[in-house]
Design a binder for these strands. Structure first.
Lengths: 121, 121
DNA sequence: TGAATATATGAACAAATGCTCATATATTCG
DNA sequence: CGAATATATGAGCATTTGTTCATATATTCA
C-alpha cells in the first residue's frame, strides 16, 4: 500500500471499490461538514460548556457569568462572542448591562444526547 | 468593576449575588464538564466528521476510509484512535485488516440534533 | 521462516485556540 | 458634558491540535 502521494492506495481497493465510491458519493458537501464541525467546536471547551450551563439556569449578564465561573470579564466576553456567532445564545441590552440567554432548546437537547452517551460508560 | 485579580467584581454583584451563587452551586462537577467537552471535541473536526459519516454508511477498514476521504492512512489512523477512545466507534480484526464501525446510534442522534440547529438558520 | 501488507505510533512542525493585558465603545447619571 | 461602569476587541503568547514522515507491530501466505 502506498500513501496519498503514490498512485496505488490499498491492494484490496479493487474489491472495496464500490464501497469506497459509494461512501465518497454519499458524503455531504464540504461546507455542511465544516458548519457541523464548527458548531460542535463550541461545545468542545470547558469554559463554553460552563457558560451554557450557567445560561441554562438563568439569563445572565457578562459580569455575573464571569463571577460565577471565577474568570475574567474579557475571557467570558470573548467566548460569548463565539457562542453567539454559532447562534446558540442571544442577547438583549438592559441599560449598560447586556443579558445573555440560550437561543433555543437545542443546546439542552444536544448536551443531553452527549450525556446519555457518556453515561453508558 | 475589577477583574478576577482584584477583590471587587461587578458592582451589581450584590443585587445578583443570589443568582450567581445559585448558578455556581448548580454547576456540574469539573470532570463531568471536561468529559462532555472532550466528547464534543471529537465532532469538532471536519476529518473526524467525515470518518463518522463514512462509517454511518458502512463498516470500513482504515485503508478504504483513507481512500474515500483522499487522505493519508496515517492521518486516518491517528484520528480513528481518538474517536475510538471516545467510544464512538468499535473495531474488529479480519485477517490483517481492521474494520471500524459506529459503536451505537448516539453518533447519528447527536449529529442529527446539530443539523437541526443549523437548518434553522 | 521470511516477504508482503494493513494498521499503529512517536516525533516534529505548522496552524488553531484560549487567555491576558491594554484599550475602545457604549450607556447611565450627576 | 464628563466621570463612572459594563461590555467588546485587538495584539501577544503559551498551549493544543492535526498532519506528515519515518518506523514499529501484527497478520497472511508462499
Amino acid at each position: 500500500m502506498i500513501d496519498k502521494h503514490g498512485v496505488e492506495v490499498c491492494d484490496v481497493l479493487d474489491t472495496h471499490f464500490d464501497k469506497v465510491s459509494f461512501v465518497r458519493d454519499s458524503m455531504p458537501p464540504e461546507d455542511e461538514l465544516f458548519d457541523l464541525a464548527e458548531l460542535f467546536k463550541i461545545f468542545g471547551d470547558t469554559t463554553r460548556m460552563k457558560i451554557l450551563y450557567a445560561l441554562f439556569e438563568s439569563e445572565m449578564c457578562v459580569c455575573d457569568i464571569a463571577a460565577a465561573l471565577d474568570m475574567t470579564q474579557s475571557a467570558i466576553s470573548h467566548q460569548l462572542r463565539l457562542i453567539k456567532t454559532a447562534r446558540l445564545i442571544k442577547s438583549r441590552r438592559l441599560g449598560r448591562t447586556i443579558l445573555y440567554s440560550l437561543a433555543d432548546d437545542h443546546v439542552a437537547t444536544i448536551i443531553g444526547m452527549a450525556k446519555e452517551h457518556l453515561e453508558e460508560l
